[in-house]
Simulated assay, not measured.
Amino acid sequence: MKKIFSLLTVLLFALGFSQKLSNIQSGEELNYRIHYGILNAGTASLTALQTTYKGQPHFYVKGYGRSTGAVRAFFKVDDIYESFININTGLPSFYVRNVREGGYTQHLETVFNHNNQTLILTDKETNSIRNLNSVKGVQDMLSAFYYLRSLDSLDLKVGSVRKLNVWIDDEMFPFQLRVAGVENVKTKFGHINCLKIVPQVISGRVFKDKEGVTLWVTNDRNYVPVLVQAQLAVGSLKASIDSYKNVKYPLNFF
C-alpha cells in the first residue's frame, strides 16, 4: 500500500492558462470514501474558503487524506495539501504538501511567481531552499482540480483533451485529461449524469496502464467529482462521494 493511497488522493485533488474560478463558492466542502478492493481504506476531504493573500482575492483550499480501519492498523496515512489560488486567474500562489505515509514523511512549500515563470521550493525537513524555473500557467495538484471545475462546458465536450503542467512534490509533470463520454453514475444519493474523464498517468510502477484511471464529474456547472476508479498493478482503488455542502449549484440526483 506504500504511496498508493496518496496517489489516489492526488488524482482526486488534481485532477494551462489562467481561468477565473467562477464555479466555486466559499465554504464548499467535499468528502470521499476510499476503498482498496473490498477494504474500507480511508477518507479524503476538500474544503475551499475565500480569503486574501498578499492583497489579492484567493481561495484557501485544503485537502486531507487519511487511512482508516484495518488499513490504518498496518499503514498509517495522514496527508495534508494546501493551496492559495488566485480567484481572478485560477493560478496558485502558494502550495504546501505535508504527508506522513507509514515511515515516509515529506513537507514541502512552493511559492509561485507567474510573472517570470519561476518558483521557490522549501523543504521544511531539511531546511533547504531552491529557486527553480517554471512554465507558463503551471498548476499545483489542488489548483489543477479547481481549474478543471471552472472551465466552460465548451471546453469539456466529449472527445476534447485538456493539457496541464502540474507541479507535484518537487517536479513538473505534463498532465492530460480526455473527456471520454457521458454516463449516469450511481452514488449514495442516487444516480447523477456525469462526464467520464480519463487522465493520462504513468504506467508500470503503480497503474496497469497509462489510462488506468477514470474520473466521473457531474455534468453541470459544478463539475464535482463523484467517483474515481484506478486499476493498479496490484488490485484496484475506488473513491466515491460521501458528503458535500455549499456547492454553488444544485446537484440533480435522480
Rank of each mutant, 00 (worst) to 15 (best):
F84T: 05
E171M: 14
L142D: 09
V247K: 03
A48K: 06
Q19M: 09
R72T: 08
T51R: 13
A239H: 04
N23F: 06
L8C: 15
T187Y: 06
V206E: 00
S83E: 02
G181L: 04
L251W: 03
T43I: 14
F112Q: 12
L46F: 08
K248V: 12
P174A: 00
F175Y: 10
S160A: 12
G63C: 13
C194H: 04
R66K: 15
A239I: 01
Y147Q: 10
V99G: 06
W167Y: 12
L237Y: 06
V213R: 00
L49N: 14
R162M: 11
K157W: 08
N184W: 15
I192V: 04
M172V: 12
V201L: 01
V201Y: 00
L7A: 12
E183R: 08
L15Y: 11
T89Q: 06
G102D: 05
I24N: 03
Q19A: 14
K196H: 00
L21R: 03
N246D: 02
N184H: 06
N115Q: 14
A230S: 00
H58W: 13
A239F: 00
Y81Q: 09
F74H: 09
Q117N: 10
E82Y: 02
K188V: 13
V217L: 12
V96I: 12
F253P: 03
A230Y: 00
Y64K: 08
G27I: 01
L8G: 12
S45Q: 07
E101C: 06
W216L: 12
Q56I: 02
F75V: 13
P225K: 02
F59I: 05
V234M: 01
L232N: 00
L15M: 14
L237H: 08
I192T: 08
L142V: 05
S243H: 09
Y244K: 00
G137C: 04
